[in-house]
Design a protein around this nucleic acid. Structure first.
Lengths: 220, 220
DNA sequence: TAGATTGTTAATCGATTAACAATC
DNA sequence: TAGATTGTTAATCGATTAACAATC
């Protein structure tokens, strides 16, 4: 390591667009493994992931050289390497705040568990919800957030409250030591530097579809 | 229109990245209007939408010139123009297929109604679910999809089934005449040209957060 | 060796941003 | 007119894609 390489060295500085696709590749590899496939080409994996093979190879090149020229990729090996890169070779403890309809659905979603996440607590500010049990987890008072985060080492929080409560919840999460937030409330959260927020907005997705649908109907 | 303008003429060919942000601006404008604000600058609107003002102005420039130099934007006017551009000045009928935990939550979500969408039917293949009523809408057999799409002129469908059923549901939707699909199932859908699919994947969002979280913990 | 397929290069494309002329 | 703010320009940045040399 005397000279700085001009080509992109694997390991660090993976583009955001690539990071967002790694979980898609991981899922495709899990499906291939479950189907009994031991080896696959970039073409096959790309098809399963819904991208083109050039993009897939370019993405994987940021992680390292895990394929074999003339042969393809070992499914299990690549699967492990991507899981390690994402950080889901072990489970991440997660809390969900706001146990309304959506919070219920999220708490019951079995896909989290199998993909590297464990819901360690459900929190709701409404005293009427206290004692309720969803997916074998008791709903606890929102005031217990800090203790729960400390005891379980929680780094990731899910906001599933109404819009008006979302900023307060996010503030409390940050205060408690959470540094990654998945926000389902239809509001823009402001958080300090170093805290990541991702947003899932159902209406916005539908509106994007509506825009294109409108063009189809009129344009021809 | 004798010469082709070299500058981007408003009205057509809006970049995808801009389209994805228009609903965010619309939501911010609705909030400003409800707060009694009549006029706002690009700086203020950008703050409310969580983007920088240069990006906002660039985005709006693709729609037309709806602001006034030295003054800003009329909130109600811009709100209407964006709603018209997206196509949500009238309601879009929507069907939801798969009334499990997530389907329940989606059916009960009041935000759709106020943002240009009307859930006209809930469908589920499980006969045990028939007759169930969610958010004042009766669950109907999946086999009725085509009739419902025809009767209501449905163009947008929501897939909230388990992964194994998703492709079959999408095929049936396309067959019935639906040309925009919002997919909550963790699977890659293949659809013919002319059909739009958008995907919401809860595990993928969490995995993207986990990736960054992992770097924070180790890197420093 | 011949065939196959990766990993990389380089060209292209699209998105972001800062700066500022236009103009209310 | 002076001050403010838009709409546009141009530079920069990042992502995508096709082509192919490297190599199993």
């Amino acid at each position: 390591m005397t000279a700085r390489s001009s080509s992109e060295s694997p390991g660090r500085d993976i583009p955001e667009a690539t990071i967002a696709r790694l979980p898609v590749y991981l899922r495709a590899l899990v499906a291939l493994a479950e189907a009994g496939t031991a080896t696959c080409s970039s073409e096959e994996l790309a098809l399963a992931a819904g991208v083109n093979s050039a993009k897939l190879r370019k993405d994987l090149s940021h992680l390292g050289s895990y394929g074999t020229r003339g042969v393809g990729y070992d499914v299990d090996y690549l699967r492990y390497q991507i899981a390690r890169e994402i950080g889901v070779t072990q489970d991440w403890p997660v809390v969900i705040v706001g146990i309304g309809n959506l919070g219920h659905a999220l708490a019951s979603y079995s896909g989290f568990r199998s993909r590297g996440f464990r819901v360690v607590a459900l929190l709701d500010a409404d005293p009427a919800r206290r004692g309720e049990v969803v997916a074998d987890i008791a709903v606890q008072p929102f005031a217990d957030l800090e203790r729960i985060v400390r005891e379980h080492g929680v780094a990731i929080g899910v906001v599933a409250t109404p819009a008006v409560a979302a900023q307060d919840v996010a503030d409390a999460m940050v205060e408690a030591g959470i540094s990654s937030i998945l926000n389902f409330a239809p509001s823009v959260l402001s958080v300090p530097d170093g805290v990541d927020v991702r947003k899932v907005d159902l209406s916005i997705e539908l509106q994007i579809l509506a825009y294109h649908e409108q063009r189809k109907a009129s344009g021809g």
